[in-house]
Simulated scan of single mutants.
Amino acid sequence: MHEEPIHVEHVEAWADLTNALAVSDATDEFYETEDLLEELGEPGVDPEHDTVGLWDRGAMVGFGQLRLGAQLRDGRGRISIGGGISPEYRRKGHGRKIMDALELRATQKMAERFPGIDFTIDVWGNSPGHSAGLMALARGYEPARYFQDMAVGPGNFCPSGPPGAIPESARLLSYSPRIAEIVRLLDNEAFADHWGSTPKSVEEWEATTGARSFRSNYSMVLLEDRGSEAEPRALCYVLSAEWISKELYISRVGTSRSDRGHGYAAWVLSAVVSAAFEAGYTKVDLSVDVQSPTGATGLYERLGFKTVRQGIMYRKIAAAG
């Protein structure tokens, strides 16, 4: 048994482990090797120091990875730590060793990037009662937010039509690099009042929308043309990805804070989901913060989405190193 950073040559074993965990923990989070290669190359990620792989007899049996948001939120840095341990290796101290290494790395990385700044560490605890959450509690983390995964199939989908009032100059179009910066700025504004979010840098946005899993043809933007004197303005957008063939994942839904309450999100999301089902997709799913300030859960329920699993994000506040 030994630990070492996750290198490019390890991604196949890493994919085998993550996909086995998707089955054993019923998370439905399946990844191809190409997806994990992209994770190693994400902006700001240093695989040599930000990842840990646990190996036994040539097989990866556990892993951990750390991410630091490129910008501060509420005067703090935000670290997220993810990972997993094969069920047969749990409750033997392996997860604790990985967390020890990554929490130490969190302090070091914050000191390098944002010296003297406090930070939070978020850890995904999976479903209530899962060993990951129990370990987080034992390490001083507290339940901070509850999320639920929701899904809808073609037979249960209840699409919403166009809102009664749409600016005459607004049009619905597919996402493209031409409007990337407009949508990025709206994303940062729309999620500024959402728990756990940090503003996305240009590099982070390009990594997200340039990923192998991103589906621009099922990502739509309601764009308002403001004439030759001003840039167009994005009112609402829906971004999608695909990790499992013919299952579309809604990764972002955002509306300008001044345009909330007009029904834009329901309409744009309906257009995306309808297009997916017409193209032969068998399921559309998403994850939502139960306490979302926009009341997103109710919106998704009206469109026919049903909760399929729940999970908890645990958080610890750490002082600058």
Rank of each mutant, 00 (worst) to 15 (best):
M99Q: 08
D46I: 05
A230E: 15
M99G: 03
G161E: 11
V183W: 09
I317R: 03
D187C: 12
S228W: 03
L186G: 02
Y314I: 10
A180D: 15
Y141I: 00
G64W: 03
G321A: 14
T297S: 12
D149M: 14
A144E: 09
E32M: 07
G84Y: 01
H94C: 05
L186N: 05
E3Y: 12
R171N: 14
N156I: 00
E142H: 07
E204S: 13
L104V: 13
R113C: 12
L21F: 02
A15Y: 01
R309S: 15
S245W: 12
P87N: 09
D50S: 05
I312W: 05
L40P: 09
E168T: 14
L21C: 07
F119G: 00
Y141H: 15
V152G: 01
Y141W: 07
L185N: 08
A271K: 11
E231Q: 14
S86K: 10
Q65H: 03
I244W: 04
E278D: 15
D289C: 05
D74S: 14
E231I: 01
H194P: 13
T120F: 00
F147N: 11
W205C: 12
E142W: 00
A101Q: 10
I317K: 06
Q148M: 10
E112D: 14
A144S: 14
A279F: 08
R212D: 01
G58H: 04
I79K: 03
T18A: 08
T51L: 09
A165Y: 09
G41A: 15
S80M: 13
E42S: 06
C158A: 15
E229C: 10
R67D: 02
I166P: 07
V268K: 02
F305L: 02
G263I: 03
I182D: 02
D46C: 11
S160W: 06
D25L: 01
G53W: 04
G196E: 07
S274H: 05
S201D: 06
G227H: 05
R212N: 12
P154N: 13
Q291T: 07
A318F: 13
P177N: 03
L102S: 04
V61D: 02
G298M: 00
W195D: 07
G77R: 05
Y175L: 04
V272L: 10
G82Y: 00
S274L: 12
